[in-house]
Design a protein around this nucleic acid. Structure first.
Lengths: 200, 200, 200, 200
DNA sequence: GATGAATGAGGTTTCATTCAT
DNA sequence: CATGAATGAAACCTCATTCAT
């Protein structure tokens, strides 16, 4: 039995259920079936455990995000695919996302932690991907000529905000995937519908 | 000087700068120039202090939000005005928003606290306002015939996500106000531009 | 009952008996009859407790050392009086001295602690006092013309070394007070005894 | 490379630099380039490592100390030679002495350890050597008729105290070798200078 | 209304040592 | 001979809250 992996699994579950700060390292050890000290043999810190969780999630997220936008004919379809992927990722990795959204904002403004660096990197890559899709969309005519960088921030904000509402808000959020896609499609489509464009 | 008010002011500043959980009640008392015990004479507990901060911010936010959408001719313009108001509120109440965004996600999924109730109420009201604006917009022709409830969630998510990025994300976010308005306007505008609509 | 004082008294006893590092803060609290947390209300640290012990001992030591050398007619008699005072202080403050000699060498080479500063100051003052006595002794003819600064180091080293042996060495040290005085007197006396000096 | 020796060398360096208690066994192993478990294969425990260091230093010290006093014509010259040797040993074995002076006082008052026995033995031998030199000096007329045992304690205390100041004190200690010799010579010389003694 | 001394539960981390391989 | 994963005891310290004055 791999103790290192058992620790990660217990931690992911407990942190998601009870919160990082409300879960004691003793609980993690007990749930994983290892001695308390074993945690600190394998990971430097309590934070080290959660970093391992995030490192893995980040890697999977970025890899699959890249795949989701590849092999789509137009920029608009790439954006759409990306939105779909995000909705799917929320379903498969809700625990990791929940831990991150709920428990780490605090770290992000204060200390210069490894977490902060990871978030910064992930953010930058995601923004770059969105921006690239928009640029392609503008070139292939599927997207209106918007400021690609700023629009990337907006789409990223939209994804993040909906994720946050879904996982953390005390209000019940309905299924929005189709509507979000329609919303973005409408926002990004060239202003003049094609059937009219030809008549100009 | 009013001790009760001094406590709130110190707390707002310290919680915003250092985080709610990283600020001890003793620090709040010292900064406010009152004895430690005085905090608990005026407020039930540490959370009571932050609740007072939020209660006030909530009241101001909802009042001014209502005002911002009143007296606008069309639904679309109400939405626009609301977006503008949010950007302005972010500037005037960044500390309160920061405390809320950074430090309270934890409470929102776990306990059935007064905070949770407050957030639920505020959320519901904001969603209702947006939804109402959209309905009016559809009626007056300034907004495309969308599902008003779901679109309200989307717009709310967008606002929240951008707010979050701006205040908490380690990446530097550019000024997006005008772009956000353009984005939403494009997303919500009736598909057929007016000049063509008339020719149908 | 003064809890702050009770803590100091228990700590002095326990640290002397068992050593600073082998005494837990819980033990100190229990012995003093206060809650564990009370230690940290009154003192910043475990180290803070021992610093308080030293601060007091330092003050008493330097004050009484000054008194012991005042009002002695010659420099040689001042030195003698100082040696006597040191022997007496060893008897009245053996616990404080023991704690210091046994448990703090470690701190003195590494960190830039308050303890280090205190030791440095005390050392400098003691050296200055000895040096001053020697200078006076040379002027009044009771002390041979030695290098006062270096000799002050030597006498200080002698005092310290004997103290250390007495309190810490596993060998049993006999009563040496009179012999030490004779030794120093011989070392410092002008080379030519007075009865012969006149015949020159 | 000899693992056992590598461990001793790393330990000597680390213990001297960082202190025995602040150096973990894992650090010693890493620095020595051996596995953690290897330490406990070769030495019973952490203390066993330092005992090995001291055993060697003790042996060298006593051997060379004996040599330093042999073949000197008078008792006084033996004492002088011994003082010189101590100053030299301080230079060649500062690390071992530092570890001993700084980190082991604690052990010396409490447990009945092998270390305590070693110190006791060393101490007794050194005192015996000094005492013997003094006796010889008294017999050959180079030393005043002092109580040899007690004076041996005093000289030992002086050597130890100066060593301690030099290696551990936060104050900068000047070069004192010549002065210490002069001090002891003056203290031990027969009171009546020879030119007068003959005239009696 | 205001104080501040006192509490005590709770949490993270360190580390020498063991032992199966 | 040598390893290194695993242990678990022990320690320090923080802090919101209480309550007698």
């Amino acid at each position: 039995m791999d103790r290192k992996q058992a620790i990660i699994e217990s931690a992911t579950r407990l942190f998601a259920e009870k919160g990082f700060y409300s879960t004691s390292t003793i609980e993690v050890a007990e749930t994983a079936g290892v001695a308390h000290g074993t945690l600190f043999y394998h990971y430097k810190n309590k934070e080290g455990i959660v970093l391992e969780i995030f490192r893995h999630a980040k890697k999977v997220y970025l890899q699959e995000l890249e795949i989701s936008v590849a092999n789509r004919p137009t920029g608009m379809e790439k954006i759409e695919s990306m939105l779909r992927f995000n909705a799917a990722f929320k379903r498969t990795h809700s625990r990791q996302l929940l831990i991150f959204l709920r428990d780490f904002p605090e770290k992000l403004t204060s200390e210069e932690s490894e977490l902060k660096t990871m978030v910064k990197e992930t953010n930058a890559q995601v923004l770059a991907i969105i921006s690239r899709c928009l640029t392609e969309g503008i070139e292939d005519g599927s997207v209106a000529p918007v400021d690609t960088d700023k629009t990337a921030y907006i789409i990223n904000g939209l994804i993040f905000g909906l994720l946050h509402m879904d996982l953390l808000s005390p209000v019940q959020v309905p299924e929005l995937e189709a509507n979000v896609i329609a919303f973005c499609r409408a926002a990004l489509s060239p202003a003049v519908p094609e059937q009219y464009a030809s008549s100009q």
